[in-house]
């Protein structure tokens, strides 16, 4: 079963990416490939990516009648922001939570674990809508 691990990091977590202390910076960047390798060795990795920090985001908001409005910045004005995600294939939620606990994000991060939509169900619905 596929689950998505959504990794929300706070400002301190994002700051580690180009931390002035080289050892901290290196620790941050070397932990992720190790995690990916562990996922791969377990046959659990489906997909995943890191996102550039929130200030690089643009957001499109619907406006009644008018075209979508493009704004700088991420969607939500929260302390923690999406920093990356992994899609994993594991037997159940307990196993997904185990992998979520191993995500090498800094303390202060939040990992949301959500089942993916079953592709078959979504495709069946979509096929029903085809002319």
């Amino acid at each position: 079963m596929n689950y998505t691990l959504l990794i929300y990091e706070n400002a301190a977590g994002f700051a580690l990416r180009d931390h002035p202390d080289e050892s901290k910076r290196r620790a941050y960047w070397s932990a992720w490939p190790a995690y990916v390798q562990a996922l791969r060795a377990a046959g659990a990795l489906v997909d995943g990516a890191g996102l550039e920090p929130p200030h690089t985001a643009v957001t499109l908001r619907p406006r009644d009648g008018a075209p979508q409005q493009v704004q700088d910045g991420p969607f939500a004005d929260t302390k923690e922001q999406l920093g990356g995600y992994f899609i994993i294939d594991v037997p159940d939620l307990d196993a997904a939570l185990e992998w979520a606990a191993r995500v090498p994000a800094a303390p202060g991060s939040v990992i949301e674990v959500r089942p993916n939509l079953k592709p078959a169900a979504a495709e069946a619905a979509a096929a029903g809508a085809q002319p």
């Binding site: 596929n2 998505t4 997909d47 899609i87 939620l93 939570l97 979520a100 606990a101 995500v103 994000a105 800094a106 303390p107 202060g108 991060s109 939040v110 990992i111 949301e112 674990v113 959500r114 089942p115 993916n116 939509l117 979504a122």
Partner: peptide, 19 residues
């Protein structure tokens, strides 16, 4: 390239990592 549809928010579980 890829992507994923997520199930409903109420199916989510969250882990907060503290020291």
């Amino acid at each position: 390239v890829g992507g994923a549809g997520l199930d409903l928010p109420q199916t989510a579980t969250t882990i907060r990592l503290e020291e």
